[in-house]
Amino acid sequence: MEFNFKEIFTAFMVLFAVIDIIGNIPIIIDLRNKAGHIQSEKASIISGILMIIFLFLGKSILNLIGVDVNSFAVAGAFILFFIALEMILGITLYKQDESTSVTASVFPLAFPLIAGPGSLTTLLSLRAEFRIENIIVAVIINVIVIYIVLKTSSKLEKIIGKNGINIIRKVFGVILLAIAVKLFTQNIKALFI
C-alpha cells in the first residue's frame, strides 16, 4: 500500500465536486420535507458501499462488455464536462425522478443523487490515474462529509444561504470543468497509441 496525500486530496476534491453534496442541500431539504425523515447514516453508508463496489467491479464489468478503462475515462470526462456545465450555467441536462416514499434515504438520495452515474464514472476515471487505496480513502472521507452535510443540511442552508450555495456550485463547477479537460487529454492519447 502506498498512500499519497496529493492523490487522496485530488481524488477527494474530484468526487466532492461531482457528488456536489453542498449544492444538493436544497434537494435534500425538499426530500426531507416530502419523506418526513432521512436516515443520514443509512444513505451515507449505502452510497459509500456502492462507490467502493463499483471501484472494484467496474473494471471487470467493462472488460465483460469489451471497453477499456481509457475509453471509459474519456466517456467519464464528457459526463464530468456536462455536470460542470450544469453547475456553472445553472441549467439542468439530467432530470431525476422525485420520490415521496419513506425509502428516500436510499432512493433517490444514496442512489442516484450521491452514488450516481457521475460519481461512478468518476471512480473508474480516477482508477485509470490514481492508486486504488488512495481512491478508497477519498471515498471514505467523502462519505464522512456527506454524513455531516445530511445531518446538518437545514442548518447549513441557513448559514450559507441560497447565494452562498450558488457561489459554491459555480466554483466547484469550474474546478470540475478543468478536471474533465485534464482527464480527457490524458486518456485520449492512449486510445491512439
Rank of each mutant, 00 (worst) to 15 (best):
G173R: 00
A11E: 04
I144N: 06
V14M: 03
I146A: 03
I28K: 03
A138V: 07
S154A: 07
A180K: 00
G36P: 12
N134T: 04
I21L: 06
Y94T: 15
A110L: 10
G36R: 12
N4E: 12
G48T: 06
F5Q: 04
A128E: 07
P108M: 03
L85Q: 08
T92D: 15
G118Q: 02
L191V: 11
V171P: 11
T100F: 14
K95E: 15
V137R: 03
I193K: 13
F16N: 00
A104Q: 11
E86A: 09
G164A: 13
T10C: 11
G36F: 15
G76Q: 01
L31F: 04
I22Q: 06
G164R: 05
L62C: 09
E133L: 09
L191Q: 12
L123T: 13
N187H: 06
K182M: 11
I83F: 14
S153M: 05
F16Q: 01
S60G: 09
L126P: 00
K189Q: 15
L64E: 09
A115T: 04
L191D: 13
S60D: 11
L113Y: 00
A178R: 12
K158C: 10
I144M: 12
N166Q: 13
T103K: 14
I45E: 11
F81G: 13
V145G: 02
F5M: 08
I135R: 03
V181G: 04
V171A: 08
K95A: 13
K151D: 06
G164T: 07
G161K: 15
F3C: 10
S40E: 14
G48H: 01
N33Y: 07
L109N: 01
F54D: 05
S44Q: 05
E98R: 14
S60A: 09
N33G: 09
I165W: 03
I165S: 02
L156W: 02
N142Q: 11
G161V: 10
L15G: 02
I160Y: 08
I25Y: 01
F16E: 00
Y94P: 10
G161L: 12
K189R: 15
I61H: 11
L124H: 01
L124V: 08
G48P: 01
V74P: 00
F130M: 12
F9S: 10
L120D: 01
E98L: 10
Y147V: 06
L176V: 03
A43I: 04
G58H: 04
S101A: 14
L177D: 00
I61G: 09
G116F: 01
N166R: 10
L126A: 05
F54C: 09
R169Y: 08
L31V: 08
P26W: 06
S154C: 04
N24P: 06
L15M: 14
G164W: 02
I165E: 02
V143R: 01
I46R: 00
L62M: 15
P108W: 07
T121D: 06
V145Q: 02
K189P: 09
V143M: 13
R127T: 13
